[in-house]
Amino acid sequence: MQTTIQLIVNNTPCEATVDTRTLLVDFLRDQLDLTGTHLGCATGNCGACTVMLDGLTVKACTILAADVAGSTVTTIEGWTQDARQSGDLHPIQAAFVKHHALQCGFCTPGMVLSVQQLLKEKPHPTEAEIRHGIAGNLCRCTGYASIVKAVQEIATTTSLSPGGRGLG
């Protein structure tokens, strides 16, 4: 069954017709070609499909596209663009690159969004808080050490600023 929805994706208003069965993750990937959001399990466990819905991270495989009508969705593509206003990588992404906090990159977009959510709520997390903050994102490659290291570095070297270079 088809239904029409209006929502804002990556700052752009959009209207689309979707099958009611369509998951938010499939809608973003298949209908909007936003393939930075990945699908790893479809049971809400792995976190590869993490996006921001109305400013909070959620798992897009556990949400119907038709049910987010009227909402604001931000994917890794939109977030990266917002963060890149001054041209280079966002501090979180830069720290991920510096510490090679990724290998295959499949979990990375979701992981980056979870890290930004964590740092927004706790700018200076302890190691335990970092580990709990990213527990909804499975990584099969890194064993998490490099990710934890990257986040620790951001938490100690970057201060929140109101502009586009902040951690928001």
């Binding site: 809400g44 909070l56 798992k59 903050g133």
Partner: peptide, 9 residues
Amino acid sequence: IGDVQVRNR
């Protein structure tokens, strides 16, 4: 309960 994303939704 669950993880951050689960708690958000």
